[in-house]
Amino acid sequence: MQLTKKIVPLTGAIAFAIAGMASAQEQVVRIGHVGPLTGAIAHLGKDNENGARMAIEELNAKGMTLGGKKVKFELDTEDDGADPKQATTVAQKLVDAHVNGVIGHMTSGTTIPASKIYYDAGIPQISPSATNPKYTLQGFNTTFRVVANDGQLGGALGRYAAQSLKAKNVAVIDDRTAYGQGIAEEFTKSAKGAGVHIVTTQFTNDKATDFTAILTAIKAKNPDMVFFGGMDAVGGPMLRQMKQLGIKVRFMGGDGLCSADLPKLAGDGLEDDKVVCAEAGGVSDADKKPMEDFKAAYKKRFGQDVVIYAPYVYDALMAMADAMQKADSSDPKKYLPFLAKIAHKGVTGMISFDAKGDIKDGSLTLYTYKGGARTKIATVK
């Protein structure tokens, strides 16, 4: 009996030591992801989270070694509800959790205030979808984005409205968020420069459901196009009410509008060729196969189609991991310089950044909707 008592703790100690040795050979790298997982645009936030999860699973399946130790990637995902105050709260939570990097946030209104917190902590942040130029104009060396900004997006839409769609008189609506206001201002600037007359500018908010007053005011101005700066959750119902009020003009918007869910949200308000929108990204024909392969893998993994940003989240996370590999370290201070100089071939194209952290040579893809499906018009630079 005494012999047994002596052996049992010895065996336990050996097992503990072996487990310790095994864990010492493996390091956990925690990547934070933040997006709206609740609220009106939760479908977009979940799409982003899925893109991050695909990248994490692929990295772990392939295996990576840093500093001689095998790496296990873990995703620390948080919900900012598309609310700036909530965004700063979860950003601090990720900093306190000592994440090695952050992919997010989704909207400009949440990404910009959170970026100061990550910068102060020295944690690299890559947004897959925030387009307001202010994000990368703050002088933070930790901020990056993998999509074109509002200057490029709004500018392209303004020129397209004037030159290709021959718009003369346009009404502009924005939802007063950093994203909606930013893209509406850039569109207005570009459209005016191309000779378009802005007949009225109206405002709503990102929680609104009734647009009767602003649409009635717009109808009285008799525009030949309406531009909306905001997300699909507001743009869809707005299209329904435009039809009810007999406003039969084209409806234009940016990437927040340009989702696979818009037909469901707009219902019978989405007529063929009525909507023209642009995604802050997109691939040329030469890069089409990697994107199509990603979309097929995504559908197999999650049982649904990509909504908008999942491929950009995937590329952002993979580019961050690539920088870690080049630095042979997951320490933010060590891999940050490599991230700033990265040239990563992703499913959305080449990921590399300028001195501010903006994507170099960012693409834009113009879409319309036909038969209830999003249909590509062209990819432009």
Score class of each variant (00 low, 15 high):
residue 7 I to R: 04
residue 9 P to L: 09
residue 17 A to S: 13
residue 17 A to T: 15
residue 17 A to V: 15
residue 19 A to G: 14
residue 28 V to H: 09
residue 33 H to I: 07
residue 33 H to L: 10
residue 39 G to S: 00
residue 41 I to C: 05
residue 45 G to Y: 03
residue 51 G to M: 06
residue 55 A to Q: 03
residue 63 G to R: 10
residue 70 K to I: 03
residue 77 T to R: 07
residue 78 E to S: 08
residue 82 A to K: 02
residue 85 K to I: 08
residue 94 L to Y: 05
residue 103 I to S: 01
residue 107 T to I: 00
residue 111 T to V: 05
residue 118 Y to F: 13
residue 119 Y to D: 11
residue 130 A to R: 05
residue 139 G to P: 08
residue 140 F to V: 08
residue 145 R to L: 00
residue 145 R to W: 04
residue 153 L to N: 14
residue 154 G to L: 00
residue 164 S to T: 12
residue 173 I to A: 06
residue 177 T to N: 01
residue 180 G to K: 03
residue 186 E to L: 13
residue 190 S to P: 13
residue 211 F to D: 08
residue 214 I to H: 07
residue 215 L to H: 12
residue 218 I to C: 05
residue 221 K to P: 10
residue 232 D to T: 14
residue 236 G to F: 09
residue 243 K to H: 11
residue 249 V to Q: 02
residue 253 G to F: 04
residue 255 D to F: 05
residue 256 G to F: 04
residue 267 G to D: 02
residue 268 D to Y: 09
residue 283 V to D: 05
residue 287 D to Y: 01
residue 298 Y to Q: 04
residue 302 F to Y: 10
residue 303 G to Q: 11
residue 306 V to R: 12
residue 317 L to I: 06
residue 318 M to I: 08
residue 321 A to F: 09
residue 336 L to V: 06
residue 336 L to C: 03
residue 337 P to G: 10
residue 339 L to N: 10
residue 345 K to R: 02
residue 353 F to S: 07
residue 355 A to I: 10
residue 362 G to M: 06
residue 371 G to L: 09
residue 373 A to C: 02
residue 373 A to W: 11
residue 381 K to N: 14
